[in-house]
């Protein structure tokens, strides 16, 4: 996997590059808007990570616009200290696939990068999803584990569906809140944790293999492997 990182702040760039390299990605870093735009347009990338406020006064959004105008469909993750809802909406409407505000936890960035890379390769028209002996039928919205039907509320079904679509990946609480509830605020109470533990009760109780795991300091992951 080959990633392009356009970020003018050297420390942040080093932090991201080191983390991504550790996870097995190759990263090309550019600290300038013009060079970044050139690289984004003229080479093939699996994912582009863009800072918004670049040193030469350029807005990373102009690079996204140029990339989309050129018909390049590479997923773009926008990183920015511009944290307001309006800026986020601008970023996503401007062609970004995801928007992460600084400062961020590396686990959050990693989870989002993996989700984006997976999304671009995944077929959305699947009717059935499965992980180990857990099966989801998307058309009838039925769930069963080891042949036993499990009753889920509609929202729980969407939560499970999102986790299964991203199986073997860490998904963060924020990602779940954004994807399943479509909200962009941080609730004080650990609402997502409680939702997950209720879901875990329904799908894992009585089974030796726990599918839904908590990844400490990052989020959750559904996995068939122990």
């Amino acid at each position: 996997m080959h990633l392009l990182l356009v970020e003018d702040e050297a420390d942040t760039a080093r932090y991201i590059r080191n983390g991504l390299k550790e996870s097995g990605y190759t990263v090309t870093w550019s600290g300038q808007a013009a060079e970044g735009r050139h690289l984004a347009l003229n080479e093939r990338w699996d994912l582009i990570i863009l800072d918004r406020m670049l040193a030469d006064g350029a807005d990373g959004l102009s690079i996204v616009a140029a990339v989309r105008e050129a018909g390049v469909k590479t997923p773009v993750l926008i990183l920015s200290a511009l944290a307001t809802l309006d800026e986020r909406v601008r970023g996503l409407r401007g062609g970004g696939d995801d928007y992460l505000t600084k400062p961020f936890a590396f686990s959050e960035l990693m989870a989002r990068i993996e989700a984006l890379l997976r999304r671009s390769g995944l077929r959305d028209d699947a009717r059935q999803l499965a992980v180990a002996d857990l099966k989801l039928d998307l058309s009838t919205r039925r769930v069963e584990r080891a042949g036993q039907p499990i009753a889920l509320q509609p929202r729980e079904f969407r939560l499970l569906e999102y986790l299964v679509r991203h199986q073997e990946q860490v998904v963060t609480r924020t990602m779940l809140l954004e994807a399943v509830w479509d909200y962009h605020f941080a609730p004080q109470t650990n609402v997502i944790d409680v939702q997950i533990s209720r879901l875990r009760n329904k799908i894992d109780k009585g089974h030796t293999l726990s599918l839904l795991r908590t990844v400490r300091g990052a989020g959750y992951m559904i996995s068939a492997h122990d």
Partner: peptide, 10 residues
């Protein structure tokens, strides 16, 4: 509906 479904488990 959305927010109550978010908080019902809590």
């Amino acid at each position: 509906v959305d927010v109550v479904e978010l908080y019902d488990a809590a």
